[in-house]
């Protein structure tokens, strides 16, 4: 029963990893950009949630109303003012600029919020659980998982059923020709980053309610998100959910064997899957 429980917890944790991954997958799919500062932005969103929660004295989940638009705006400006200048066939500039950004963010957060671990208190939600037989399922992890599914379903709908989604896909296919259709590439890219950071905001708030975080927590979140993306298959949003679940379950089982093995187990499963399924479990079928 201990094992079933740790697998179940792993599945639910996979929802959080899918949230880390979705924003990463999104911008890679649209503009082939890999944002090394992605994890640090998740942590920034968590700190932002903390500030909003304590200054307005509201529930952490209510802070989403402020944090999501704030992060989206930050994403738009970040892309429009900084990252658009690095977009070319050369992968080095965006990589190194976001790497520099990552170092800056970590140290600015360290200066502002200190190195102390923080956590957001969700009150009764923290301990609320549903009992099914001998299993106790936390309401918060369950909510987190449901939100992950909703976010991915929402992104999927946006991509395939709206004009902006069509613009994203067209720009991803051929940015030059998309511009001839009256799409401003810089604006489309900036909207994509805004959307990515809106998802990052949700991921950050749930991270902050589930576990403690500090200014140096970012890189590990980036790596988890990245692993979920690769396991699931590049450019497949539902794939990232499965990737997240596999990663979460691997970590859960690893932790059950030995607490020191939690992260290592996740990384090893990722490396093994990379060896046997280099295109991920659910690669996007080329049309």
């Amino acid at each position: 029963m201990v094992w079933v429980n740790s697998i179940l917890q792993g599945v639910l944790l996979g929802g959080l990893y899918a949230l880390f991954a979705a924003g990463l997958s999104l911008i890679f799919g649209i503009m082939r950009l890999v944002n090394i500062a992605h994890g640090d932005l998740i942590v920034l969103a968590a700190f932002l949630g903390l500030v909003v929660t304590s200054s307005l004295d509201i529930h952490p989940l209510a802070s989403l109303v402020v944090v999501v638009p704030a992060m989206a705006l930050l994403g738009y400006l970040l892309q429009y003012l900084l990252l658009n200048r690095t977009m070319s066939d050369d992968i080095l500039p965006p990589l190194l600029v976001t790497f520099g950004l990552s170092v800056i963010l970590q140290n600015v957060m360290l200066e502002t919020f200190s190195a102390d671990p923080q956590k957001m208190n969700t009150g009764a939600l923290d301990t609320a659980s549903i009992t099914v037989g001998a299993l106790h399922i936390g309401v918060l992890p369950l909510l987190m998982f449901a939100v992950a599914i909703a976010v991915i379903a929402g992104l999927q709908w946006l991509f395939y059923h709206t004009a902006i989604g069509r613009a994203f896909r067209a720009t991803s296919d051929n940015a030059d020709i998309a511009q001839l259709m009256g799409l401003n590439k810089k604006h489309v890219f900036s909207l994509a980053m805004a959307l990515s950071l809106a998802v990052v905001a949700i991921a950050g708030i749930f991270l902050g309610t589930k576990t403690s975080f500090d200014p140096s927590s970012g890189p590990a979140r980036l790596i988890f998100g990245f692993e979920a993306v690769i396991i699931g298959g590049l450019g497949n949003l539902w794939g990232t959910l499965f990737g997240g679940i596999i990663l979460g379950v691997a970590q859960g089982i690893g932790a059950q064997i030995h607490p020191g093995l939690q992260q290592l187990a996740g990384h090893l499963v990722f490396l093994i899957l990379l060896a046997i399924r280099p295109n991920g479990l659910f690669p996007r079928v080329a049309h």
Binding site: R166, R169, A170, S172, D173, N174, D176, I177, A178, Q179, L180, M181, G182, L183, N184, K185, H287
Partner: peptide, 24 residues
């Protein structure tokens, strides 16, 4: 002007090799 601004003025192109959007 940027390509999108020029397109909005009423200048369209049928590019060499069609160049349709494959995911659409």
């Amino acid at each position: 002007l940027r390509p999108d601004q020029i397109a909005k003025q009423g200048i369209a192109m049928v590019p060499e090799g069609r160049q349709l959007f494959p995911s659409l």
